[in-house]
């Protein structure tokens, strides 16, 4: 019976082994970052021609990418499990405000990061223990935290007590890389390793791909969802800390533009909203494209509202050109050509 049932499979893989090109193609076919690569190439080429200044003033560009990217990385962990965290931008704002309301910068940072973790725990509690849909639960959290940020700050930006630390933080540390960039890179590397090499992280994919199967296989689903929301909350508050340090003040309205962009970065990067598919590498590519795009548009004097129109369109385009539907379309086109020209 193995013959009848595995023969086609055999044939396919044997051919693939003998043929390097098709092997490469198989590997590429399994990747999810196709759209992000395409978009990034297009954006790079166009900006290189029209706004080369984007690359010469790379500090600005990299800073932008790091801001979107950091939040998007945390989001990726949650979306991979088929959940949403709409509260990230508000978490960013509230943790910034909390940090600035402490005299000591160290205690401020610790309090801010602790807040981020706590928000993650509360989100996960509502989603997995109480059983509220994560869209609704984190939407509630979004408003709650935004309100809290205004109340704590007294509805005005809070200046950092220790302004010098903030200024020192903004300076490049290694070569052109500012501490913000370095933290972003570190977060990216750690999350990448966590999601591909660490057992608990890899199990995020199982939780998102087929939660019932994950549970039945003995994976502690509840714990994984808690971890995911905590990562997202922590990373968002980290972004809040960095933001506050760089601006030497915490603004309760901070990050309102980040929510859309970071979601878009993850989705363009190939992370499936239903969970189970995607990678932080894709998210990084998505964030880079959007960051470049935003800076290029700003430098060419495009209004913020128009920028949002562009980002929205790119996001829609990314969803329409989902690689799995593209692959299906390409397959049928090829079959069409073959059957017309063949005997």
């Amino acid at each position: 019976m193995t013959d009848t049932q595995t023969q086609p499979q055999h044939a396919e893989t044997d051919d693939a082994r003998s043929d390097l090109i098709s092997r490469v193609r198989t590997i590429l076919g399994r990747r999810t970052e196709g759209r992000a690569v395409a978009l990034l190439s297009v954006v790079v080429v166009i900006t290189a021609i029209t706004e080369p200044i984007v690359f010469t003033s790379y500090e600005v560009t990299l800073g932008r990418i790091a801001l979107i990217g950091l939040v998007a990385l945390g989001l990726t962990a949650v979306i991979l499990m088929g959940e949403l965290d709409l509260a990230v931008a508000s978490t960013l704002a509230v943790s910034g405000v909390i940090m600035a309301s402490f005299e000591s910068i160290t205690i401020g940072i610790l309090a801010a990061l602790g807040t981020g973790l706590l928000i993650g725990v509360v989100n996960a509690f509502f989603v997995i223990v109480v059983g509220i849909n994560s869209f609704i639960a984190t939407l509630g959290m979004l408003f709650f935290l935004r309100g809290a940020a205004f109340v704590i700050s007294g509805e005005a930006p809070v200046r950092l007590a220790n302004v010098d630390a903030g200024i020192a933080f903004g300076r490049p540390l290694i070569g052109p890389l500012s501490p913000r960039m370095l933290i972003f890179i570190a977060a990216f590397v750690m999350l990448h390793i966590f999601l591909t090499r660490v057992r608990a992280g890899r199990e995020f994919y199982a939780v998102g791909g087929n939660r019932e199967a994950a549970h039945d296989a003995g994976i502690p689903v509840t714990r994984r969802v808690f971890t995911g929301f905590m990562i997202s909350g922590f990373v968002a508050s980290l972004a809040g800390v960095i933001n506050t340090l760089e601006r030497t003040a915490a603004d309760p309205t901070a990050g309102s533009a980040v929510l859309l962009a970071s979601f878009a970065a993850a989705i363009i990067g190939g992370v499936l909203l239903n969970g189970g598919r995607g990678s932080v590498f894709g998210t990084l590519l998505g964030a880079s494209s959007l960051g470049l795009l935003q800076v290029a548009l700003t430098l060419s004097g495009v209004q913020v509202d128009v920028q949002n129109i562009v980002i929205g369109s790119v996001l829609l385009l990314a969803v329409i050109t989902d690689p799995s539907s593209l692959r299906a379309a390409a397959g049928s086109m090829r079959a069409l050509v073959r059957s017309r020209s063949g005997p």
Binding site: V198, R199, A200, R202, A217, G218
Partner: peptide, 12 residues
């Protein structure tokens, strides 16, 4: 190996 992924100090 779902749910029983072999790992060394957490790493697969």
């Amino acid at each position: 190996l779902l749910g029983s992924t072999p790992s060394r100090s957490g790493f697969i």
